[in-house]
Amino acid sequence: MTNSRTVRALQAAAGIIALAAGWQILSMVFPHYLFPPIREIIARTIEILITGSLLIDVLLTAGRIFGGLFGAFILGGILAMIIGQSRSAENFIAPVLTFFQGIPALSWVVFAIIWFHGIEFRVLFIMVMTTLPAFTFQILDAFRSMSKDLFEMTMAFRPSRWSLFRFLIVPTIVPGILTAWKVNLGNAARVVVVAELVGATGGVGYQLLRQQQLFDMAGAMAWTLQLVLFVLVVQQTIAAIENWALRYRAVSERAM
């Protein structure tokens, strides 16, 4: 298993190295303001990470992503539980969520700017509205995949609603919740940049707008990398939580 992990890590590294090499070659052919050398991008990336006043923008964006995802997760979880227990509620709520899913993130940005004044509330609103349908449907799917056998077995002990939720429902939906977080994290990272680009005075999106105005490609790449690094770190953290929470699964299920 360790060998296969090493091979996978090497393959992933090879892909990134090939991409970087391609970029470096382009930087030799084209002017640096279009394709800055890798060394310069890395230096600017490190500069952001070690400069407090710049790092705060990264943390601001991270906070907005987490805030939005957490809000959508809580709201989506509640909606999923309501829909899961009532066909009428599903008939009422599901079409609305499907309708929301069809609205582009940029439209939500425009709506938020027209409707609200506070920057943070605008971003939170945009984040929640764009990730809510996916969270709801993914948690609902996990809830509905609950084993009838396990449900009957648990009911045979006559649990209270709280016991049923704690001992059966939560462990059943945990894999679905983790998947929902992984999927929505990438979406949220893209949406937050759009939201910040248009209506914020801080954050990675705002900084990207500044780099565009300065025509600074190395800066744009460095700020983009901040977001990529953030997503990678959080994805790895979720993967670690997943490995711990789903440790009961047979090894063969995770060996590949």
């Binding site: 009957e152 077995m153 649990p159 001992f167 009961y248």
Partner: peptide, 24 residues
């Protein structure tokens, strides 16, 4: 109740499965 199939919760250890009814 003892069912035809064991109906153990896969996320619980043997001890925790036996403990389920007592926790409830």
């Amino acid at each position: 109740i003892v069912f035809q199939n064991d109906r153990l919760m896969p996320w619980r250890s043997a001890l925790d499965n036996v403990r389920l009814g007592l926790q409830i």
